[in-house]
């Protein structure tokens, strides 16, 4: 589904990713872990198309398409969706409007036509319920005045409505208390499907108790230095990243 090959990325002239290679197949859940500054967020930002990241070498391919040549919205329309670590507040734009505009933009891009309003409302209501969110959320401006936990739930709500093929979740657990984390994790787990993949970027192992990954990658200094299964995350929790960094050096 997603192939990242020998990816080198610089930000403000400084090389952050230094030859990252990663393959994610349909049906898999991957977790990328690593210390601060290793380049975890850079990877998902580059795949989503954020400005300010210069790819100097390597490629990113999603279902055979060259992601790096696609517009930001085309990536989302193709099924690549990024859940933000710090969701942006968008005053004046109601949640319901974002959801509807986004869903219909994606459907129209795929040649499916807009979803009829009653069907849309039924879908949104169901997903809201799943995320234990009140219907009043729909009327509020996107993330404006939301608590940290509400913002993260809102990111997952968007995922549930938009049903991406590859959901990338950047530090989705940061700032969550244990109850909120369970709700968020349930939301993410509900996305697991044979034709879908999930990429979790996280600093802590804690999240992986709730969303058990198929593969865990350790990212240190711009490269994946180790790959394993869920057990690797527990090992990191016990020993930290230091040992791994030393073994690379």
């Amino acid at each position: 589904m997603l192939q990242v090959n020998d990816l080198h990325v610089t930000v403000d002239g400084k090389e952050i990713l230094k030859g990252l290679t990663l393959t994610i197949n349909a049906g898999e859940v991957h977790a990328i872990m690593g210390p601060n500054g290793a380049g975890k967020s850079t990877l998902s930002a580059v795949i989503a198309g954020k400005d300010g990241y210069e790819v100097t070498q390597g490629s990113v391919t999603f279902e055979g398409q060259n992601v790096l040549e696609m517009e930001i919205e085309e990536r989302a329309q193709a099924g690549l969706l990024l859940g933000f670590q710090y969701p942006v507040e968008i005053p004046g734009v109601k949640n319901i409007y974002l959801l509807k505009s986004a869903l219909n933009a994606q459907r129209v891009a795929r040649g499916e036509g807009e979803m009829p309003a009653p069907e849309f409302m039924k879908l949104v209501k169901e997903k809201l319920g799943f995320m234990k969110m009140d219907a009043s959320f729909l009327q509020r401006a996107v993330n404006e005045g939301f608590s940290g936990g509400e913002k993260k739930r809102n990111e997952i709500l968007q995922m549930l409505v938009l049903q991406p093929k590859l959901a990338m979740l950047d530090e989705i657990d940061s700032g969550l208390d244990i109850d909120a984390m369970k709700v968020v994790a349930d939301g993410v787990n509900s996305l697991r499907a044979g034709d879908r993949a999930i990429l979790l970027v996280t600093h802590y192992q804690r999240l992986l108790d709730y969303i058990v990954p198929d593969k865990v990658h350790v990212l240190v200094d711009g490269r994946i230095v180790r790959t394993g299964d869920a057990e690797l995350a527990k090992e990191l929790e016990a020993n930290g990243y230091e040992g791994i960094e030393e073994s690379v050096a």
């Binding site: 954020k50 517009e71 919205e73 969706l81 933000f84 968008i90 734009v93």
Partner: peptide
């Protein structure tokens, strides 16, 4: 807000619509 335009585009909304939405939000 360029960050808001980016956030909307990452949801599949094209740039012109994103700008329109934010402009309208301002006028709201």
């Amino acid at each position: 807000d360029e960050d808001a335009i980016y956030a909307l585009r990452t949801r599949g909304i094209d740039k012109a619509t994103a700008r329109g939405l934010l402009t309208l939000a301002f006028a709201g």
